[in-house]
Amino acid sequence: MRNLFAALAGSLFGTGLLVSGMTDTRKVQGWLDIFGQWDPTLAFVMGGAILPMAVAWIYARGRNPLMGGQFPAPPEQKLGRNLILGSILFGMGWGLVGLCPGPAMASLSFGGPGVWIFVLAMVAGMWAAPHVRMRLDALNASA
């Protein structure tokens, strides 16, 4: 059952990404391009997505997940260097070609070889990330 709900969530996520136009790299880069022809679509997507999600978080209070277990603990308040540095690196890659992990996966079946090259490099980056994080933590500790 858990896997069924996970597949349902993934299917909805993929459908939403297609409908919203977020698999179109021009819309993403258009949102980031404040000095060009600025495209505000992404703000509508974000706003639309945050709405049901906020309701879900409120509903989750004092309850347990349908499939058992517990809801995630309240978010950490500590920011940390990794959060900032990682987000900057991610944003650079996102701006460079207009793809982030969700839309890249969603467009694997129709986006052509470019999407595959991106996803393979992304997987390589994710594989390397724990090592990068270890180095960063060592640097932070010695600083």
Binding site: L12, F13, L17, V45, A56, P65, M67, G69
Partner: peptide, 26 residues
């Protein structure tokens, strides 16, 4: 495009809500 963005966004948020409320996952 903005309207499709909004509708698509609502579907994405629903996906997140399903994953959270059913499986307890982000």
């Amino acid at each position: 495009e903005w309207i499709f963005g909004l509708i698509g966004g609502l579907i994405i948020g629903t996906a997140g809500a399903v994953f959270l409320l059913a499986n307890g996952r982000i």
